[in-house]
Amino acid sequence: MIALEVIDITSNPVNKYVYLSIILFAIGVMGVLMRRNAIIILMCVELMLNAANLLLVAFSAYTGNVEGQMVVFFVIVVAAAEVAVGLALLISIYRNISSTDINLLNRMKG
C-alpha cells in the first residue's frame, strides 16, 4: 500500500521543486501567449494552477505545515468550478461564431 508508507523527504532539497514549478508555470504562460484555440488556453491555465499547487504541496511537506495542503484542496475545488463555467462560456461562444478562435473575439458587440 502506497498510502501507508511514509517516504523520507529530507534527502531531496526543496529547491528542485521550486525550479520545476517555475518551468511548468512558464510553459503554461507560453501556451496562453502562443495558442489561439480557447480550449488550449484554458488547459494552459490549468497547467499554471498545477505548478502553483505543486509548490504549495512541496513547502507544506518540507515545513511540516498542513495548511498548504488545505489551500491546494480548495484550489482544486475552485478549479473544477472554474473549468465548468469556462467551458460553458466556450460552448455559448461557439454557438454564436462557430469557432473557438480567440482572434475572432476582438469585437465587444455582436
Binding site: V6, D8, I9, V14, V18, F59, A61, Y62, T63, G64
Partner: peptide, 15 residues
C-alpha cells in the same frame, strides 16, 4: 535557501 528553515519531521500530514 528555503530549505534552511524547513524541519520535515512531521511526516504524516498528508494522510
Amino acid at each position: 535557501n528555503p530549505a534552511a528553515d524547513s524541519h520535515p519531521t512531521l511526516h504524516t500530514i498528508g494522510m
